[in-house]
């Protein structure tokens, strides 16, 4: 086998796979979004963006991402630092912390619904302890803030571990000698974290953030389980257009809008966390 053609031959299967199952459907979706049966048009986009629910679902999606991702980042960094500094039982703790990753997002939503609903754990516990007279409906249109908090909590619980595992791997790649040098030259624990760990973790941070932000824009099942129609998000609207209003063109248009937001966010993250040439470990 000619050594020049071999690499291309080896990546051929995955290229075909991606082409058939990702690129082709993507082209179909784009085609659907830009046509209504009478050639190229922006009608689908006009229709979905001028709908009264669009600004709300757009705002909700961004707000949720803005509330959840930074908290997850901070938590994941804290947890990763703790795990890295553990001498014993490190793997066990890591496994336990990543359990929520193994639970589907709809199931996660239902678990948190079981906590927050009128006959849920939280109400029973508060009542049992005598804090409240009788169970109240926490998740209702009268308390939008609580709905938001419940969804954010469920998302944080469910998806922090994906960042955690990436950051733990990243921290493991930083040679110990840098920390020792920093310590000798006067950096305390906090300075070592901000001056050594964070900058050297940039490649892992950007991977984790890109992954997490994209997933945050696609949030659906948890919101559906906890908020239902109380808290519309973009992905929920896509679902509704596709399966309730049977308008594939409009659904495709929203899907493309989510894609554009995701790409924009990715570019910003990559730009902010880029490592200058020659400055990597």
């Amino acid at each position: 086998m000619h050594s020049r053609t071999l690499p291309y031959l080896l990546i051929l299967p995955v290229t075909v796979f991606l082409g058939v199952f990702f690129l082709y459907p993507f082209v179909l979706v784009a085609q659907q979004a830009f046509t209504t049966g009478a050639g190229f048009t922006f009608d689908n986009f006009t229709k979905v963006t001028t709908h009264w629910k669009f600004p709300t679902s757009f705002k909700n999606t961004l707000l949720l991402a803005a509330a959840v991702v930074p908290v997850q980042l901070a938590l994941a960094l804290l947890m990763a630092t703790m795990v890295t500094n553990m001498k014993k039982g490190r793997d066990l703790v890591l496994y336990v912390w990543t359990i929520p990753l193994g639970i589907s997002d709809l199931a996660a939503g239902i678990i948190w619904l079981a906590i927050f609903e009128q006959s849920g754990f939280l109400n029973s516990m508060m009542q049992g302890l005598g804090f409240i007279e009788q169970p109240t409906n926490l998740i209702s249109y009268q308390s939008p803030m609580l709905v938001f908090v419940a969804i954010a909590l469920a998302e944080i619980w469910r998806a922090t571990a994906i960042m955690l595992v990436i950051l733990v791997a990243g921290i493991g790649l930083i040679p110990k000698e840098y920390y020792e040098a920093a310590e000798v030259f006067g950096a305390g624990p906090w300075k070592r974290f901000t001056r050594i760990t964070l900058p050297l973790l940039r490649p892992s941070l950007s991977t984790a953030l890109v992954l997490r932000v994209i997933l945050a824009f696609e949030v659906f099942a948890v919101v559906q389980a906890l908020g239902g129609t109380l808290f519309p998000v973009l992905m929920g609207e896509t679902y509704k257009y596709q399966f309730e209003l049977l308008n594939g063109g409009a659904a495709a248009a929203i899907a493309l809008i989510i894609l554009v937001i995701s790409i924009a966010a990715t570019l910003v993250i990559l730009r902010v966390l880029r490592v200058p040439k020659g400055a990597s470990i």
């Binding site: 840098y178 020792e180 040098a181 000798v184 900058p199 940039r202 400055a279 990597s280």
Partner: peptide, 13 residues
């Protein structure tokens, strides 16, 4: 004190 390390530990970033 100041120290010089075997692998230099010159901060890459």
């Amino acid at each position: 004190i100041a120290m010089v390390f075997q692998n230099y530990a010159v901060f890459p970033h």
